[in-house]
Design a binder for these strands. Structure first.
Lengths: 189, 189
DNA sequence: CCGAACGTTAACTGATCGGTTAATGTGTGA
DNA sequence: TCACACATTAACCGATCAGTTAACGTTCGG
């Protein structure tokens, strides 16, 4: 299997796990859905867990790149970009196949904090936090770490609720919440 | 099985599913962990799903009652009670067996919005939202619905992150976020 | 034209899945 | 003391689980 074929497999497995869940989707079904035989899958991934970890690494890269692009597209100034996070979220929520966050689901199914899948999910959130912190610094926040953590809390809450309630409503609520936080940060200080 | 025995089973199953996950915990293991034979379990629950739904209904009642009690214990005035939500959250996060929210996990494993388990999870959040709205009304909010939704976003985000990061830190961040929201709501209007 | 290197299908392992059945206690009330 | 309602254990069902193996193409460079 060439490197690109392997990437194709991981990409297809990502979508399949996202739709089907990690425990709920067996390897036979996965082989059928990806169009790659079980034999070939196990040639390049020792275990199901290894494959899941590969899909999570891909998703991390994909999502953060996508978010940064969309944020940049929505606003050019750092302060506006902090709000634009939630405009991007709204776009995500409105995608027809939105099904919450891959990493929240992963950490729900693999709860043990020492589990590699759980650890990978935490790393993803940590990288997002880093990105938020950089934006907060550029925006001139007096406490960019705290501000970033607050915005991350809002983002994660929005994702969970968008999966349960009306995604558009939730996106609007989250954006308004962020606006208030930023107003407190920059105009009432 | 008497009604109280049945309640005992549901209570034990609740703990077992919370620790083990829904798909990951099979019925044989569940029988062993609860001390109730599989035969007896299936005498009173048609399917595993029915048992899960019973555990979720119990958890909904348990959690909302607990939250209301803790909020009342932390503050007597409505405005203070809105903040006290996050003091209660902190207490929850610090419990040694905290493993995120049962309903977030349930909706992660049963993603289909028409699935009864998913629906039950959404109902739980809806009831929490109702409680928040009542508090916001009593506190004199001009838009109690919006305020309640914002606080719910913060609460859900805090739960997710408390499961991935340091629970104490996250509780502090969430409380501070809520404080800012309330300040914007009541002092800057 | 040959032989790796890659893929496939399909059968197989032992374990476990959700759920059922049969045989066997056991405690309580009439 | 009898009988019934309740529990138990343990075996069983067919399906599926993660993972392995064997036999059989296909492709492509030397």
């Amino acid at each position: 299997m060439s490197a690109s074929k392997r990437d194709e497999l991981v990409q297809k497995a990502l979508k399949a796990f996202y739709r089907g869940g990690f425990h709920a989707l067996g390897m036979d079904k996965l082989a059928k859905e990806t169009g790659v035989s079980k034999t070939a899958i196990y040639k390049h991934f020792r275990t199901k867990e290894d494959l899941i970890l590969a899909t999570l690494r891909l998703r991390d890269e994909q999502f953060r790149n996508w978010l940064m692009r969309r944020v940049a597209a929505h606003a050019s100034e750092p302060k506006g970009q902090l709000i634009a996070i939630f405009d991007a979220l709204r776009e995500w929520f409105e995608e027809s196949d939105f099904r919450s966050c891959m990493f929240i689901k992963a950490s729900s199914e693999y709860q043990d904090r020492t589990n590699p899948i759980h650890v990978t999910a935490a790393e993803h959130k940590r990288l997002l936090l880093l990105y938020f912190t950089e934006l907060a610094e550029k925006a001139g926040s007096k406490d960019p770490d705290s501000l970033a953590r607050e915005l991350l809390v809002i983002k994660e809450g929005a994702i969970v609720l968008a999966h349960l309630f009306d995604p558009e409503d939730v996106a609007r609520d989250a954006r308004r919440t962020a606006e208030r936080i930023l107003q407190a940060e920059f105009n009432c200080g």
